[in-house]
Simulated scan of single mutants.
Amino acid sequence: MTFATIVRTKALPVADWLDPAELARDPYPSFRRLREEAPVAWVPAVNKVLISSYEGCSFGERHPEIFSSNVSGGTMVRAMGGQPMIRKDDPEHAAERAPMNRTLRPKQIMEIWAGKFEANARHYLEEMIEAGPGSADLNLDFAKPLAAKNLCDMLGMTNVEPLDLARWSRDFIAGTGNVLDKQEIWDRCETSRAECDAALDETMARLRRHPDPSITSMLIEAGMDEDKVRNNVKLAISGGVNEPQHMITNLVWLLDRSPEQKAELWADPGLWKQAFIEASRYFSPIGMITRETVADVVIGDVTIPADTQIGMILASANRDEKQFPNPDVFDIHRDGGPNLAFGSGVHQCAGKWAAQKAVGEIAVPMLYRELPELRQDAGRRETWDGWVFRGMTNLPVVW
């Protein structure tokens, strides 16, 4: 008997207690309750069936023929003004992703982008140091502008100020997570789309004359039509700032509370890769991904009907006690198999390798080499935002 073929099934449980406001404050207690009481449940507050277990989310990622990415009326398409590759199924998805992969594989990351990541990290570290201990904010002075500048370079958008691109990313992410349909968020998305499209007019014209190794150039060289190029650049903007930005602050926040593990990283820098992987499990930067069933499917002992919108809560799956012993403990020596922080299967985040290099191998190790006493300012608290995409908006630091 396999996970998806259980004969005796039951109707969908309803989790009418789930409160999006509580999720925004701290989602993990609610995720735990979902896993314990109803790992597959209809949630009226978000108008979706939520899957919260590792096994359920992993199954969904392994079966894109059932869990389609082509979600009808999805918030992502509305936020960005078009349908990017992540909202398409193969073979159309694969055809659009292939040219992007040409510049995002580990070999290309090392040969083309690692030097730029290093120079950019050095630049923003100097700016944070200039702000001074007690005034510096790791997110505002380092993580956000660094992630945005790295992405400007990777997109070939040299005409864009990094903080403008970071604002577009924030708005596209807010729109993608706008499950409560707030008009103020849609208005922000519209403004950012217009600014992004204006910048892309110049970028695309320049790259047609002078191709380079950037993502945008690869999409153009592949013969992709202009609307698809724009949609997929906006997709890269939405995740390409948010995820590495939050991974920097998450990792520093966790190490600040794990002095023994921080000391191990000093003694053995080879552990940084595992520290990045464990931090991405503990605080998953992609909290939930959306799918739509194309046929009835059984998950555990629950039947999900066809044409149902699904939210696969990766942040919950990565805290599932059945997959990860002591999941609420940050442990850089954890041996629990792969996590789902960047998704898996055909839709695994294309920027995973870039984030691992830029954050886990360059930016955060550089922070501690240059500022060995770096720590959160005890007199100023951090602030968190979101649950579909969750991370710190402020992390005051001293050194």
Rank of each mutant, 00 (worst) to 15 (best):
L254D: 00
W272I: 00
S72K: 08
T5D: 10
L180I: 07
R87E: 14
P244S: 00
R375C: 03
D16V: 02
Q183T: 07
Y282T: 11
M85N: 04
V302N: 04
D187L: 03
T191D: 06
W253L: 09
V346P: 01
P213Q: 09
N70L: 05
E61L: 13
R32F: 09
H210S: 07
A295W: 12
E184A: 15
I286D: 13
D331T: 13
D320W: 04
P269Y: 11
E373C: 13
P285Q: 02
F330N: 13
E126M: 05
M218L: 02
Q274F: 09
P145Y: 00
R105N: 15
G391M: 02
L151H: 08
G311L: 04
I215A: 10
T203S: 06
V43W: 00
Q245L: 11
T308Y: 06
P91C: 05
M312T: 06
D16E: 09
D19Q: 09
G391A: 05
P338S: 06
L180T: 11
F276V: 03
I310P: 09
W17R: 12
N178L: 12
M76E: 11
A378T: 13
R257F: 00
L219S: 06
C152W: 01
P372Y: 13
P396Y: 06
K10G: 12
I220F: 00
E184V: 15
I277T: 04
K262R: 15
M157R: 05
I6P: 01
T9N: 11
T5R: 14
E382P: 07
M366R: 14
S284D: 11
A114S: 12
K352C: 02
E55D: 06
L340C: 05
P20E: 14
L314Q: 14
A94R: 10
E361N: 08
M218F: 03
E55P: 03
G56Q: 01
V71R: 05
R102T: 11
A174S: 04
I237A: 15
P91Q: 08
V329G: 05
S68K: 07
C189E: 00
M204W: 11
I313F: 14
L200W: 04
I215G: 08
A341W: 13
Y368T: 01
F117W: 00
K107E: 12
I220E: 00
A194T: 05
A79P: 06
S68C: 02
R167D: 12
D89E: 15
R193Q: 11
W266Y: 01
I289L: 15
A354E: 07
